[in-house]
């Protein structure tokens, strides 16, 4: 028995699918993204500037360290939140 809510959900899902399909066809071709100056600079200078052979690590901890700081904060907040939720339950 399909309710009105089910029809609305199917319609919503269809709209999202069509939208994603059009985005898929209109985005830049697979395998040839628009190279910005930043990307080429990082590839050219990582080894000399950071001394690391791993480009991803040099981006995570050096060029974009602030991102990693925020990420560490998110992880810390998650652990704090889990501890807080289960502290209350123990009583």
């Amino acid at each position: 028995m399909l309710t009105k809510r089910d029809y609305a959900a199917v319609a919503f899902l269809t709209i999202i699918t069509v939208f994603l399909m059009f985005s898929m066809l209109l985005i830049h071709p697979f395998g040839s993204p628009n190279a910005s100056a930043m990307d080429q600079y990082i590839i050219d200078n990582t080894v000399e500037e950071t001394g690391a052979n791993n480009g991803v690590t040099s981006v995570v901890f050096d060029y974009r360290g602030f991102d990693t700081l925020g990420e560490a904060t998110v992880l810390f907040t998650a652990v704090a939140g889990v501890i807080m939720i289960f502290r209350r339950l123990k009583k």
Partner: peptide, 25 residues
Amino acid sequence: FPVPQALTLTSIVIGVAVTALMLSL
């Protein structure tokens, strides 16, 4: 390009944190 891979790493860790909070709730 290394930058999207680094941001994906960030995204994965944040996803783990969000999943842990959702499961706790």
